[in-house]
């Protein structure tokens, strides 16, 4: 009887300790990345390669999803605004929801599942096939040569992707609202411009996307580096990357919104 009570509690304790320990290791890993980023400055081409694989290769999914999200916002927003007779505010609705929230968050979620999982799988497989160890035996630091360029590449790509997502979304909203439904072109843009503030809205959206970029790439790199060097280990790590970074994005989004917009 006491064993039935104690063992779940012990399991819980074990889980908590283990996840705290992992967070500590991940933080140390993050610090290590920053400390060993010298090679990225000296050899920018290493980073450019990673901007290609994280950024350019994520372009299509970002552009297409951005368009669709914007178009849906246009349709739904028009429906609601029409009830209050203020269809002209459609531009404001579309732009603010994209620039403040949907742009950074949805782009980061897509980035996590497209680029983050690829990073984890790649690094995990490099470890499983002894490539990381081979690099170490060749006196090359894998953190500096493999991990740091991917970190900076992701960090550069993420805000650009989020900006493209928002821009495409606004374009999609414009297509549905103005071109298809016939909201007045002038008031669509002018109301938007009057309501969207560069410092309050756009800049904070960019800050969000940079923070998400740091979180997703760090999680993806850590999971890849930490994965057991087996097929099962790598596949689990890839799943964990997507789950953990999605949760991290949403949690961070709440914290950032609270801090920046409400000034908590």
């Amino acid at each position: 009887m006491p064993k039935r009570v104690i063992s779940p509690i012990r399991m819980l304790g074990h889980r908590v300790i283990e996840s705290l320990w992992r967070m500590g290791v991940a933080a140390r890993f993050f610090a290590l990345i920053l400390m060993r980023s010298g090679a990225c400055v000296r050899r920018p081409h290493l980073v450019i390669r990673e901007v290609f694989s994280t950024g350019v290769l994520s372009l299509i999914i970002i552009i297409v999803s951005g368009m669709f999200v914007g178009m849906v916002l246009g349709l739904q927003g028009y429906d609601t605004l029409q009830t209050y007779g203020s269809e002209e505010a459609l531009g404001v609705l579309v732009a603010l929801s994209l620039v403040r929230e949907l742009g950074p968050v949805v782009a980061a979620l897509l980035f996590a599942s497209r680029a983050g999982s690829a990073i984890t799988a790649e690094i995990g497989l490099m470890r499983a096939t002894e490539q990381i160890e081979a690099m170490q035996m060749m006196a090359v630091d894998p953190i500096a040569r493999v991990v740091a360029p991917r970190f900076w590449g992701g960090l550069i790509s993420m805000p650009l992707l989020a900006a493209m997502f928002s821009a495409m979304g606004i374009f999609g909203g414009y297509l549905v609202g103005v071109v298809l439904i016939g909201v007045d072109d002038g008031s669509f843009w002018s109301q938007m411009q009057a309501a969207v503030d560069f410092g309050d809205d756009i800049l904070q959206g960019v800050i969000k996307s940079v923070v998400f970029g740091v979180a997703v790439t760090t999680i993806a790199l850590f999971e890849g580096f930490d994965a057991p060097p087996t097929a099962e280990g790598v596949s689990r790590a890839t799943t964990r990357t997507v789950v953990t970074s999605s949760l991290a994005i949403l949690a961070l989004d709440f914290i950032l919104t609270a801090v920046m917009f409400r000034g908590l």
Binding site: I48, V51, F52, G55, V56, L59, A95, V99, I156, S157, P159, L160, L161, A163, M164, S166, A167, M168, I170, W189, M192, Q193, A194, V196, D197, F198, D201, I202, G205, V206
Partner: peptide, 23 residues
């Protein structure tokens, strides 16, 4: 490709700043 990507990203940012925002 990377050049195009960065240029497009910056263009999107400028579009947001000037056309969407009030900068």
């Amino acid at each position: 490709w990377v050049g195009l990507f960065v240029a497009a990203g910056l263009a999107a940012l400028i579009f947001l700043a000037l056309k969407v925002g009030n900068l």
